[in-house]
């Protein structure tokens, strides 16, 4: 049986994505980011979030999408998964919705250019809105990073 969950909705380009609210610590406006050299291109650097140093990654870069200019709408979503705290840079984040897990369907192979393994599923909300649920542990998986690294070299 499914259950009602709360989901933070954010945007990358024209697609809408969702992260379960209990995995999100806070949502911040853009902060000054200190570049960290010699790491993956999608890692934008580290920020000081109330005394804690947290790495920030550009989610567009992580999914191999074209990176965009930061605007007033750009947000950093701080998530905590597997004892890791990471900030995601997203185009905008301004909605929290209730979602029934039964409405989440298995995703097709590729959604909006993102591989299915990063996704938990796709939920239809309203008449023509599709919400793509992210699989955070896959997104932050280190194995994947090591593979990426070897590709880059």
């Amino acid at each position: 049986m499914g259950e009602e969950i709360k989901v933070i909705v954010f945007k990358l380009g024209s697609e809408e994505y969702g992260i379960e609210v209990d995995k999100v610590q806070t949502i911040e406006r853009m902060l000054s980011i200190t570049r960290v050299p010699k790491t993956y291109t999608f890692v934008k650097g580290v920020i000081n979030l109330r005394g804690v140093v947290i790495p920030v990654i550009d989610l567009r870069g992580r999914f191999g999408l074209e990176e965009a200019e930061y605007t007033d709408q750009t947000r950093i979503i701080i998530v905590a998964v597997n004892e890791m705290e990471v900030g995601f840079i997203v185009d905008s984040a301004n909605d929290v919705i209730d979602l029934h897990t039964d409405r989440i369907e298995t995703p097709p192979e590729v959604v909006g250019g993102i591989k299915a393994k990063y996704l938990d599923g796709v939920a239809k909300i309203g008449d023509d809105r599709l919400l793509i649920m992210l699989n955070l542990s896959e997104v932050l998986s280190k194995n994947e990073i090591i593979q990426l690294e070897s590709l880059e070299e």
Partner: peptide, 9 residues
């Protein structure tokens, strides 16, 4: 620390 996410640099 730089956090657990980043590998050793």
């Amino acid at each position: 620390s730089l956090g657990k996410y980043l590998p050793q640099i």
